[in-house]
Design a protein around this nucleic acid. Structure first.
Lengths: 336, 336
DNA sequence: TTGTATGCGTTATCAC
DNA sequence: GTGATAACGCATACAA
């Protein structure tokens, strides 16, 4: 029982079981064409030696690895702030991959170096397919991988218009319902804290806000954040400066909304009496803010699951829809 | 530019450059023993063909993969709740690995199936080493991997006493300072919401609480949660039932403390006037609770970084300390 | 049903 | 400095 015992190979198992390597391979891979007594002997030898297949060798010949990459083109700080969106996607992907008995390889690609390493990794055929949790600007990577024949699915429509299959939610519809609700409850000076304008979620939600206000013939008041809580607070302060009499604000993410609530409290505004607030996402935090946050729910877990299912189908050689759009829903709590 | 173009191999590059495979390999791996003109020609051919080394083939011969696994023996729900502890560790690990130009493979092993898949993956030599973000009970996996000669480092002392090198923080010292602070400010009925008792963080923080109260000759009041926000709220309600007159509570994690604050507000208790609250972790949320949370800071990012450095040294064949313990610190805000 | 032989794409050990 | 050539550990077409 030495600590650095040689790893047993197929060969060793074959010798011990008194059969050929091929037979051992068949047993290990569950081929039905092996006589039961022999199979038993082989399994016995496998157990005795503690044999585990070398995955590198296997994937060298099978041309597949059984693992899939989920790429977060974000700084780690952003992925793991307490914004629950990325984590939710990770969970969805993880669940679906687990069901398929595939391995998840999570890659953070915030830095340029990280981006490059991801590319090497994926093109090096370390994975059978690649998921992008989000995309910034017109990142060329997904298109490049797809062109190399590597199955790729994106979370959110690629902002640059890259031709990559994606799964997204109905941002505009959700925002529209939120704004209508504010208007219906008598609000007239409706501002927004928008998300980053190089991400599709930021772009679409702002577009939705602008369209809804235009239709209602109301003036728009915009400040831009970057989906962090801190940026939400900063943007809220800007808005209050721009228009001290604003009576509602649609914030493009719950985390930013939390920051905004904080800023409003500091500024002495009551929510919802003075200012109504609606967020977007419906992460767990939304239930625990003070007061609990009215928000547009997006099915975060489902995004991850759906992306994964699409990718698995793609990797299996099936044809898939170029776009899947999931519904959003307005969840009424106490801030609007 | 066909979508499923054959991948170029070393052979192809060699042919195009008019040299041998060995030479191409040398150039690709940056060997200095290649004449510059030839090296240039090879690089040219590599670029032209878009050659990328097949990592499976490479690791088959080098016996190393350049990637390391970070295993979260938790349900995904827990890892990616908005508790920032696991994410913080992931970030630390990710940063340090990035600096070393190594790949991070994140594996969730909450379910039994997941646990088994992780074992196959690691013993299958898909990674050069393994990090456990936390350990439950006496999980046999880390010990098993270590015995197979796979470098392993644990985050937190293994509760079961497994002989695996680990990085942990000074739980007891931190809790002790928290309790002393409560006593010094006149609190006498000090309760605790403990963490899960199969995790070292839960065990040690409760032990620290009990020891500090015993020393001060005060009565202990204990409820147990599982590090989720909801469990913090539930436990807080229990405590209020047990002793309606309690005037302070040490909560073993900030997220549970958030739940506890919520429960206290609902119960009509003012914080800190009626009840003082101290958390543990100092995640970003602690700054944003209402009121901002006094808490014991642990250097979460550093835990991840330090674990990774230890693992890299281990994988490089160096000898490492069996235990590294990082300091904690009391951060005073408004709840105590 | 089982065994033999071959190849997957690299790196490493030699000669040259 | 460069080029053959032998592993690395496995899966599979083909033969028996």
């Amino acid at each position: 029982m030495s600590a650095t015992r040689e790893r047993p190979t197929l060969e060793a198992v074959a010798r011990l079981a008194g059969v050929s390597r091929a037979t051992v391979s068949r047993v290990v891979n569950g081929s039905p064409t092996v006589a039961e007594p022999i199979a038993r002997a082989v399994r016995q030898a496998v157990a005795e030696l503690g044999y585990v297949p070398n995955l590198a060798a296997r994937s060298l010949v099978t041309q597949r690895t059984g693992s899939f990459a989920l790429i977060m083109p974000e700084a780690a700080t952003r992925v793991f702030s307490d914004d629950q969106v990325f984590p939710g996607i990770i969970r969805g992907v993880s669940q679906e991959l687990e069901d398929a008995d595939k391995q998840l390889v999570l890659m953070l690609a915030g830095s340029a170096a990280g981006h490059e390493r991801v590319e090497r990794y994926a093109t090096g055929r370390h994975v059978d397919g690649v998921l992008f949790a989000s995309l910034h600007g017109d990142d060329p990577l997904p298109g490049r991988l797809a062109r190399l024949g590597i199955p790729v699915v994106s979370g959110g429509r690629p902002p640059g218009g890259a031709q990559v299959p994606y799964v997204d939610v109905d941002h505009v519809g959700g925002v529209d319902r939120a704004i209508r609700h504010l208007i219906a409850s008598g609000r007239r000076r409706i501002a927004t804290v928008a998300g980053p304008q190089d991400m599709i979620a930021g772009i679409e939600r702002l577009a939705g806000y602008l369209a809804a206000l235009r239709e209602a013939d109301l003036r728009s008041i915009v400040a831009v954040g970057d989906f962090t809580r801190e940026s939400g607070a900063v943007a809220m302060r800007e808005l209050l400066t721009d228009d001290p009499k604003l009576d509602a604000v649609f914030v493009a993410s719950d985390l930013m909304a939390h920051g905004a609530l904080h800023a409003l409290r500091v500024a002495g505004r009551r929510v919802p009496e003075d200012v109504a607030v609606i967020g977007f996402d419906d992460i767990e935090l939304a239930t625990y803010t003070d007061p609990p946050l009215t928000t547009v729910r997006q099915p975060i877990l489902q995004i991850g699951r759906r992306m994964t299912r699409q990718l698995l189908r793609l990797a299996a050689g099936e044809q898939i829809e170029p776009a899947v759009v999931l519904p959003t829903e307005l969840v009424l709590r106490d801030t609007a």
